[in-house]
Amino acid sequence: MAGAVDTSSWERYDGRSRAWRIGLIALSVVIVVVSWWWLDITLKYAATAPDRLADLLFRMYPPDIGYLPQVVAPLLETVQIAVVGTLGAVIVAAPVAYITAENTTPNRGTYLLGKLIVTVSRSVHTIVWALLFVVMFGPGAVAGTVATAVRSVGFVGKLLGEEIEEIDFGQVEAVRATGATPFQLLVYGIIPQIKPALIGVSVYRWDINVRAATILGFVGAGGIGVKLFEAIDSFAWRTVSAMLLAVLGIVLVSEVVSAYTRRLVR
């Protein structure tokens, strides 16, 4: 047996790293306790919650199926907000991705500009963008669509940019060696390599946007949310439950479409 290794005991962590780990766990506990205290969370509502929930469900049942035909139009509008918003976002996001990727961005300035666009777009929630655009464009689907697009540009731009950074540069170099123009380089060398990601990310974002668009109506930005908000405001709980079912249906459909499409591309 070589060396003076004690072969009868083995420990995953030495004393120092164990102290670190214990310290981090303690810190997490402290943060939770302080936040709880700060937010003044009490459990007094917890006792009555089951009763209230039961009461709400009782008032929601049975769903007002007869109302559903009136939901079709706003539901379609919701999907369209997602479709147009996502499409617009992808078109804007493509050049953003190009300047965000370190291997294709023309210079340091464009790189930072790309990162700035991505960050600003991503750090503000769709609903907040919608509030802004309702002021700009007035209430309705236009505001919702623009909000959806603006929020999605960062998401799509960031993921596509990362995909461009991962491409095999040898393929691009070979196309360049034939005397191709920069545009041809993009079309023949880069886009084929990111095509699956382009489609996958777009469809995935569309799927997210369908779900996000269902509540855009809460701030007057169109879609099913407008009706939903009205029904909640007027305590028409059976109408609300019918609409929730419809929303659930459309979300399920978009999820299936998204999963299926992403499996198709390779």
């Binding site: 040898g170 070979a174 034939t178 005397g179 060398g189």
Partner: peptide, 20 residues
């Protein structure tokens, strides 16, 4: 770019665009 049209090049790892 224009002059590169006159120079053909073959690579070790082929460097073909795989998805085309």
């Amino acid at each position: 770019r224009v002059e590169r049209r006159n120079i053909g090049m073959v690579f070790q790892e082929y460097n073909l665009v795989e998805r085309l």
